[in-house]
């Protein structure tokens, strides 16, 4: 969760990513069970087990009852499968005085996510378009400041933004948080769009100009329709970044009943009161991770391309 290394990585990704995505090339190895192969596959398999284990533990724990958790070990599959922890996590778990479960945080996150997505992608794509095809005096300066800003730790800008939002009367509200996401998502997405649009042949642009199309007409009727892939990549980066955000949610939302899902999840699991219900906690954790995981497994190679190009955000 960082929007770092953008400059370098994009460059690397632009050159290399397409090739990576084709998978291995060249002839298949002939001997399948040579000693070297056993070492390669053995190591990969063991490491894969380590990486897959937490997801497995989450699923398994969330399907057990509390007595079974207290008796057995965390890696054992459930003897009696129960979906009660899921129901409880979704609609009954308590944070402070609210006991209506994670569903509240989920809908808050959705309410934050949708406007943030629309505004940030719209703004970033238009920035990228202006920066690549309608350069004006000073446009590169703004772009450079934006890129440098991406490397500065968020903590430096947190408080000034509190003041700005308070002045605008938006501090503590969802729309304030949306604006913050738009601002911090801007560097990486602008870079993404700018590089993509810069590769579009100039003749196309010139022909449209000769035909009398202006700034907006060229953008909506020519550039946008031919740039679908990059919009999808930006969408993936933004969805995972905004959904996984914790810092901005906890800083710019003032009342607990409007907290995004990650913040609420942390409050539920790390609350000190009451008996710890590990199965409910893991169900809640899994629920929160479900949105980015779904995006990840569906988008597959586009996700890899997205993160390689954007090298992380959030």
């Amino acid at each position: 969760m960082a929007d770092v290394g953008i400059l370098a990585t994009t460059k690397a990704a632009e050159q290399i990513a397409p090739r990576t995505l084709d998978g291995p090339s060249g002839p298949r190895p002939k001997r399948r069970f040579s000693r070297a192969n056993i070492i390669v596959y053995g190591t990969l398999f063991i490491v894969a087990v380590y990486y897959a284990l937490p997801l497995y533990v989450m699923i398994v724990t969330s399907l057990k009852g509390m007595p079974e958790i207290q008796m057995g070990n965390i890696f054992a599959p459930p003897i009696e499968v129960t979906f009660e922890p899921w129901v409880k996590a979704w609609s009954e778990a308590c944070t402070g005085i609210n006991c209506d479960g994670l569903s509240r945080g989920f809908w808050n996150s959705v309410n934050i996510l949708i406007p943030s997505l629309i505004v940030s992608i719209a703004v970033a794509s238009i920035n990228g378009y202006a920066l690549s095809m309608w350069k004006f005096k000073g446009s590169e300066v703004f772009f450079s400041i934006l890129m440098i800003g991406a490397f500065i730790p968020y903590q430096v800008m947190l408080y000034p933004i509190v003041i700005m939002l308070r002045e605008a009367g938006l501090y503590g509200s969802l729309s304030g948080l949306v604006l913050v996401h738009v601002a911090f998502g801007m560097p990486i997405n602008t870079l993404l769009f700018r590089n993509y649009f810069a590769a579009i042949p100039e003749e196309l642009f010139k022909a449209a100009r000769v035909d009398g199309a202006g700034f907006w007409a060229i953008f909506f009727r020519i550039i946008m329709p031919m740039s679908l892939p990059i919009f999808v990549v930006a969408l993936i980066i933004q969805v995972t970044g905004i959904w996984n955000d914790f810092l901005f949610g906890v800083t710019y939302i003032s009342s607990p009943d409007r907290y995004p899902m990650t913040v609420q999840l942390n409050n539920i699991v790390n609350s000190v009161q009451g008996v710890k219900e590990y199965n409910v906690n893991m169900a809640a954790t899994l629920l929160t991770g479900l949105v980015p995981l779904t995006i990840y497994f569906i988008s597959g190679k586009l996700f890899v391309r997205g993160i390689a190009a954007g090298a992380v955000k959030g």
Partner: peptide, 24 residues
């Protein structure tokens, strides 16, 4: 398959990561 397994944790937030490992 291997790459999918090695990369999926990256899709998860640090909050989810921290809580899972707290449990493990």
């Amino acid at each position: 398959t291997f790459r999918t397994i090695f990369l999926y944790p990256f899709a998860l937030s640090f909050i989810v990561t921290g809580l899972v490992w707290q449990w493990i």
